[in-house]
Design a protein around this nucleic acid. Structure first.
Lengths: 256, 256
DNA sequence: CGCCATGTTGACTGACGTCAAGGAAAGTGG
DNA sequence: CCACTTTCCTTGACGTCAGTCAACATGGCG
């Protein structure tokens, strides 16, 4: 079904053929292969993985990929766009638990029980590869390297959350914001996007919530970083002017 | 106190035979089976698991199970006692990332890279079952239910960390401390220990660090909870006098 | 017994939250 | 395209919770 009516289809066909935004591209052809599940799989293994992956139509901004308490069936690899994961506390407040960029895996919060314990919503027009978890498990028993790799992906999620705990445990508002920017910068650069200039898809309120500070504090932090010529902030567009200063402001070693 | 030999060894041999503190007891005989890795495994599967598990001599208080940047070889199931996991931030501060009680799995921070990124230290005389990870992976490809179960264990760790993020993101000092006490209470009760009376093996400083507050604040929080007749605190001995009030103070639903 | 780590309490302070107001973007419908 | 609404963002004034510093109490251990 080449050339159905979506914005991405405005790109010329040639350039689009191997592009990870193309819903028809297989794992073996996807540009994100080096970041995503196929890492360290052989060609034929990737083809087997490819068979269980479902590629749906793009989600619009605000569309939910899954909701808290939905039954858990699949994990999702972000193909394009971005997502935020959040949950609702018992006292009714929202808590943002993560932002997910292309190549990252979403939905692992549902693995331990039969239902999700967070919701995931698209922050812009986005698309995902759905990976039915039971089938992934089935394939993983046959492909040890896939099993190994998925253990590692889950391990990475654990480390990421623990680093976040450290950030919330000891760091000031400016340090938290700087760390987030550095994290996004590094993740962009690993997928060959600019490390110094990018657009934040999430709102200030999402950022604040994620970092455990208020919107007002986020705004003031951005102000301070801009005043010190570390950043140039134009609405959601961020330009990192002085990477070293930003690292210093973060007071954490982002290099690992 | 007559004799400074370990309390455990004072128990009569008969009672000790199937006790999880006994270093010779196999997985199939361990009382913690229902909490630990063997969940949902058949008898013969447990026996296979049993073969790869190493049971070492007990660790003394302050002994390290592994250290940050140690090569990663194994995960560990706590058999008796308790551990704290912590890491050192780039600015040199300590961050406690978790406390581990019998039946819980430790060391998953090393899965995604070849080395640990946290240290684990015994908070009292403790023992563990060491589970060499490569062999676990090997066995998991043969035993789908073991693979499935280990995915779930890792998923649980992810959820636990995300709940912690929520706690640090939105809750006051009193709420954080109350939540920790409820968590320990629930974990004790799931291993058939008292849910209302227990001894905290960690120091106030560990607690504060873990909860993102200072020692002084921990002390004052304990004070407030005691003044309101929610707790009775005698050094490290905690007695929960009013469970409902503690849940209210935690402002979080601990039930799931 | 005396020492050092651990825990408690008080006084003071500051970073961040709260409340409030206004402006800028972005979405909506005609 | 423009009016209109809603959401998002910024800035200022003020209050407060928890951090900091300091002094002292306690208790486990050699």
């Amino acid at each position: 079904m080449p050339g159905n009516s979506m914005k991405i289809s405005e790109e010329p066909k040639v350039a689009r053929a191997r592009c990870h935004t193309n819903p028809n591209v297989s794992c073996s052809d996807c540009r994100l292969g080096a970041l995503c599940l196929p890492i360290a799989l052989s060609t034929e293994e990737v083809d087997q993985l490819d068979e269980i992956v479902k590629r749906g139509r793009p989600l619009q901004k605000g569309d939910h990929l899954f909701r808290e308490s939905d039954e858990f069936h699949s994990v999702y690899a972000v193909r394009s766009g971005s997502f935020k994961a959040y949950s609702i506390t018992d006292s009714g407040e929202v808590q943002v638990t993560g932002f997910y960029l292309p190549g990252e895996i979403l939905g692992m919060d549902g693995i331990s029980s039969r239902h999700h314990c967070a919701s995931a919503v698209a922050l812009e027009v986005s698309s995902v590869c759905e990976i039915p978890f039971e089938r992934l498990e089935g394939l993983a028993t046959k492909l040890p390297s896939l099993q190994h790799h998925f253990f590692r992906i889950m391990g990475k999620e654990i480390i990421k959350d623990q680093q976040m705990l450290t950030l919330l445990g000891c760091n000031s508002a400016d340090e938290r914001l700087s760390s987030l920017l550095l994290s996004i910068s590094a993740r962009n650069s690993s997928r060959h996007l600019s490390a110094t200039k990018f657009r934040l898809a999430m709102t200030r309120s999402d950022i604040g919530n994620y970092l455990g500070i208020t919107v007002e504090t986020v705004s003031r932090s951005f102000g301070r970083l801009q005043k010190n010529n570390v950043l140039k902030v134009t609405n959601k567009e961020i330009e990192i002017l002085d990477m070293d200063a930003l690292k210093k402001a973060a007071n954490v070693n982002q290099d690992k």
